[in-house]
Design a protein around this nucleic acid. Structure first.
Lengths: 233, 233
DNA sequence: TGGCCCATGGCACCAAGTGCCGCTGCGAGA
DNA sequence: TCTCGCAGCGGCACTTGGTGCCATGGGCCA
């Protein structure tokens, strides 16, 4: 017996209906009533799954933020916090890269609709704050530690977004992970302590790869994570 | 004959009424109807002066953004674009410093109300974009010029916000301009070309102070600007 | 079979924001 | 002085996002 295609969850139905209409006639020309009519569900249910109309455009960021928080929480005792926040930024890029066409469509929407751009800013801000909180705790004993943490977090986010936007503008062609690596390398170089060797990260044990994941994560995603970690070593 | 106190403009009345109510009972507990009733004007007029309820909380940013844009447009041929964007960031800090109590009150509002925080993010983003556009044009011939421009702009904004938030959290005590100078100096140091002398900005003619202003700017504001420029030399 | 719980839908309602129109006061010009 | 035009303002109706409340219905356990 073959596995039947599972009935799509209400959440997924809403996202699908919403994007269908957004692409057809635009975000602002689509009302929540239109979405729920297309999805064939009640209006009240929409707001049970998405606190606002904007949230349906970014259905995966909440999870990604949780992933990043968890990742950094598990990185409290590394030697190289800068490498950790760069890896954390790569998590976000990986989320975008998982679904290029969706990411590109959403990018076009956010470029056109001011409200969506603002919403995205608030998401980016939460990423930056997460990175900043982590770095603040790691730089606590440094002179100007919090200033350094804030500036570095902002720089990492800016580098990530630079690579991300470039990739999205290209329509999703090429390897976004390679692009973000290049951009993050620029940031690492500017704060690399004088005399440190940039090429060989000898301070980490080379044969050990730590991958933090969760039971609910699809296996292919875990595989990508492992591949990526190996690729860096 | 003495000059009568000019009848406050409708715009100012609305800001005053709004903040009175926001401080009394909170932002979200205050409706636009409440504001216009307090100000004694029609509801329709509110939205003529402020496109949204959030805009009344940030009545001066639009002007400050215009000032910054103008300032950078007049700085197209300087030797030291990094110094220019730092000066541009100081413009913003000066705007906050002009009215400490108002700035602190507003800061407390934005910390409590998520919608206002998001709105503020969109404003900060416009500042960052303005700085980034300027640096992109100045770094056009450099390797990784746009990446560098984006990262530096983000770092300058982060440093500025670091100093600003610290000053606001303190309740408006101390000299915010000195704080932002310290924070910006950190940023300048990280991208200072090797071997450059940090202490004496010898590349600029020391006796010449350029102040860009407008006819509509109040004279005391021009004076502050001149004083500030002289203080830096 | 009966009761319980949770997901959903429907309804009423509030507040933000917009389009439209009518009023009014004021200055320019005959 | 009269009148025309215009710009600022107020009122009104309407759309839309968002919330609180309750009814319903289906699955699950006793």
């Amino acid at each position: 017996m073959s596995t039947l295609p599972a009935k799509p969850s209400m959440r997924d139905s809403l996202v699908a209906a919403a994007f269908q209409l957004f692409l057809e006639r635009g975000y602002e020309q689509t009302t929540v009533d239109d979405i729920v009519k297309t999805a064939g569900v009640g209006r009240r249910s929409f707001f049970r799954y998405f606190p606002s109309k904007e949230d349906v455009v970014f259905p995966d960021h909440e999870q990604c933020l949780a992933d990043m928080t968890e990742f950094l929480a598990a990185s409290a005792d590394t030697d190289d916090p800068m490498a950790r926040v760069c890896d954390a930024a790569r998590l976000v890029m990986r989320m975008y890269a998982e679904n290029p066409t969706f990411s590109v469509q959403r990018y076009r929407l956010t470029r056109e609709v001011a409200g969506l751009r603002t919403y995205e800013l608030s998401v980016v801000w939460r990423y930056e704050k997460t990175l900043g909180d982590y770095l603040r705790s790691r730089f606590a004993d440094r002179r100007d530690g919090t200033l350094r943490a804030n500036v570095v977090a902002a720089a990492v986010v800016a580098a990530h977004n630079h690579a991300l936007r470039h990739w999205l503008r290209s329509g999703g062609e090429g390897d976004p992970l390679a692009e973000v690596d290049r951009a993050l390398e620029f940031v690492r170089d500017t704060w690399r302590p004088d005399g440190a060797a940039p090429e060989t990260p000898a301070e980490e044990a080379e044969d050990v790869v730590v991958v933090i994941t969760k039971r609910s994560t699809p296996m292919w995603r875990v595989v990508r994570e492992v591949e990526s970690s190996l690729g860096e070593g």
